[in-house]
Amino acid sequence: MMLRLSLATEDYDRVRAIADRIVNVQGVELETLALEPEELFFRMSRYQDIDIAEFSLSSYTLSVSRGESPFIALPVFLSRVFRHGNILVNRDAGIDHPEKLKGKRIGVPEYQMTAPVWERAILEHEYGVEPGSIEWVTGGQEQPGREERIPWKPPTGISIEPARSGKSLTEMLLEGELDGMLCARLPSAFDKGDPRIQRLFPDFKSVEKQYYEKTGLFPIMHTMVMRKDLYNEHPWLAPELVKAFQKAKEIAEKNLFEMAALKTMLPWLVAEAEEEREFFQGNLWPYGVEENRKTLEAFLQYHYEQGLSERLVEVDELFAPNTVEQSAI
């Protein structure tokens, strides 16, 4: 008898083969949902109303460190992004170098979000700007009233205050009440070309490539999780899911290099894909624990340093045991 389960992710090219039933999970009939991360992570944190879902690596790590996670993760990393390009400043704040962020008021939707964990780590470890040297303001990026999805207590020496009532972080940044913002999603005003919001690193692609060449880190944002009770009852499901996601990713990667009929509306996508395949030495977007151990260890260290984890979590604690090692033929 087939298991009937729900699966939710953002609408990525690397999961489309699963959503379109081109790739199936053995023994499972999946009801797939495409949800934006903010809604998906909120629902999973509060209600666990989906069986298998994309989830914030930071929120998951925080709950694992407390020994209270209702999930277990799979080494499938649907979202990974270099984040230098998401460090924004107000044009009139006079911030043209990371060191000038010291003493400034910087907005962040949630302090414990994965993207700001990486952004703060970059500022601290690459430029000497420690989190304690900044005044942090949290709140909704586009709509006022957002709160941390997982309650936590800031460590000593970190100044965090809520955004002014009725104000979004984007409004505060535009009006000069904030000097900058660390974010995952770029503000709508920035997308529309409002000149009051600028990137701290205008040539962010070059800076991010230099960061990778120096550190070997391609930041991971999200992992896949399944309800722990589901895993305990059907442990075979975890490696079957990993295999399906791997197959779907391989299909998406193959499409990047298709020239007979371009799969996207980017005329030189194939040229860019070939350049990036060479830059990453043939492994554009790795899944698996060992392939990502260095990046995961760095993230777990940053998470602990920033006072988010209650203890230093080990990489292998995060994932279903039967997905950590893979068979070979």
Rank of each mutant, 00 (worst) to 15 (best):
K102A: 10
M44A: 01
A73Y: 03
Q112Y: 13
E135I: 14
T61F: 06
S79M: 12
E124W: 14
Q112R: 13
T32N: 10
E110C: 06
G107I: 00
V76I: 14
R16I: 09
K104W: 05
G85W: 08
K100I: 09
S65I: 05
L57D: 00
R80I: 08
F42T: 14
I122S: 00
P116G: 04
Y60K: 07
L30G: 05
L101A: 05
Y127M: 08
L74E: 05
L78E: 03
S79W: 09
R83I: 12
F82E: 12
A19N: 10
A53N: 00
Y60Q: 05
H125Y: 12
F41Y: 09
H97Q: 15
N90A: 15
V23Q: 09
R83M: 15
N86Q: 13
Q26I: 09
E124F: 12
S69R: 09
I50D: 01
G132C: 11
E54D: 04
P98I: 04
S79Q: 11
G94S: 13
L35N: 06
E99Y: 10
V108C: 07
A34I: 06
E29S: 13
K104A: 09
G107S: 08
L62N: 06
E54N: 06
E36Y: 11
E38D: 11
L33E: 13
A17W: 03
A53L: 02
K102W: 04
N90W: 03
D92N: 11
F42N: 14
L123K: 01
F82H: 13
F77L: 10
L57P: 00
G132N: 12
E119N: 11
R43T: 05
A53P: 00
V81D: 15
D51W: 00
D92W: 13
L88S: 01
S65A: 11
G94Y: 09
V28Q: 07
P37D: 04
V76Q: 04
D96G: 06
S56K: 00
L62H: 11
R21N: 11
R66A: 15
Y127F: 15
N24Q: 14
N90C: 11
G107H: 01
M113C: 10
G139A: 05
F71L: 00
P75W: 06
L62G: 02
G85M: 10
I22W: 12
E38T: 12
T32D: 09
P37Y: 02
D49Q: 05
V137Y: 02
P75F: 03
I106S: 04
I50Y: 09
F71A: 00
P131C: 07
I122V: 11
G67E: 03
E38S: 12
A121Q: 07
Y47H: 11
L57A: 01
D51K: 03
G27S: 03
R66V: 12
Y127I: 07
L33K: 14
I72C: 07
N24P: 03
S45A: 15
Y60N: 06
L35T: 09
S133V: 08
S45T: 14
A19E: 09
D20C: 10
R120A: 13
H97D: 15
H125M: 11
K102E: 04
R43L: 04
G94V: 05
I122K: 00
R46T: 08
F71D: 00
W136M: 04
G27N: 07
H97K: 15
M44S: 03
T61Y: 07
V76P: 00
